[in-house]
Amino acid sequence: MKRRFLCCALWLAGAVQAAGFDYGLSARPVAPDVHVFIGRSEDFTTANGGNIVNTGFIVAAQGVIVIDSGPSLRYGQQMRQAIAAVTPRPPVLLINTHHHPDHFLGNQAFSGLPIAALPSTIRGIAADGNAFAENLFRLSGDWLLGTEVLVPTQALAAGPLAVAGRQLELIALDGHTGADLAIYDSASGVLFAGDLVFNGRAPTTPHADIGHWLTALDQLEALTRRPGFTTLVPGHGAPTPDAAPIRQTRAWLTWLRESLHQAAEAGLDMNEVLARPLPPEFADLPVAASEYRRSVGHLFPAAEQAALK
């Protein structure tokens, strides 16, 4: 029994080695000239190498606009290869939606290109990028070998952005982090929502302000009601032709905020809050239990402070 398991484990390890840290990226079209790479609905592990995130690209007339670069140098490199399999046009701009490591640690593979983000995303990557990278290395291991933080150099502002012959609309929001950029591609009607929207996976909250986040979701939902809207691309989970993932994210955040507020008002200690079961509507949501535990750590101290005043 034991030996058989060992063989199996060795075989698996060999398979990973032979595959050479292959993320298996293949571009999935969501609209003409608009493609995404969909990550797994999991926590960071040494098996997934940090590929729990969505990235994407738009093939514009004069080159490729890349949206987020993934969790490692290897991911960024493999992403470039996968883009080259779709179009001969070169990448001309990389945009980081926010300062979380699974969205910018592939930047290195695009060095030499303009890399753009909102100003406080740039400051966040400069300040915390290395600490985030170290943490991700601990969680996902050698997939990150050689990965170094490359800080974006170009500051973006809300409003229209003409790039490579394409007309983008930049929407500067916050709530998931202090600066969350959503990108609306007018030609295709695709809305890249970044991590303001999760689909089929519990949201992460290490830098969240839930009040601001809920406001941002309302603004995103309004965009999905525009006549030309076709596709919503969440930061994590499958793209949809509708606003369902926005409602799902809103339901989780609303429950989380209310539940922590009530627990603090009832005088519960953090250990008691951690021990509470998830409500049935979220029991089957992937990584709900682990994200809930993390969110209690991130958000309960503030709820507690409000209740103790």
């Binding site: 490591p101 300040a127 915390d128 985030f132 170290e134 943490n135 992460t204 290490p206 993390r294 750590g297």
Partner: peptide, 27 residues
């Protein structure tokens, strides 16, 4: 364990205490 996205940021240690040292709230 460290926590990728869940790492406490350097900014988390706010200078709050300098003005409010030993302030007690309770219930």
């Amino acid at each position: 364990v460290g926590g990728g996205c869940t790492a406490p940021s350097a900014a988390a240690s706010s200078p709050e205490w300098q003005q409010r040292l030993n302030e007690v709230s309770g219930r």
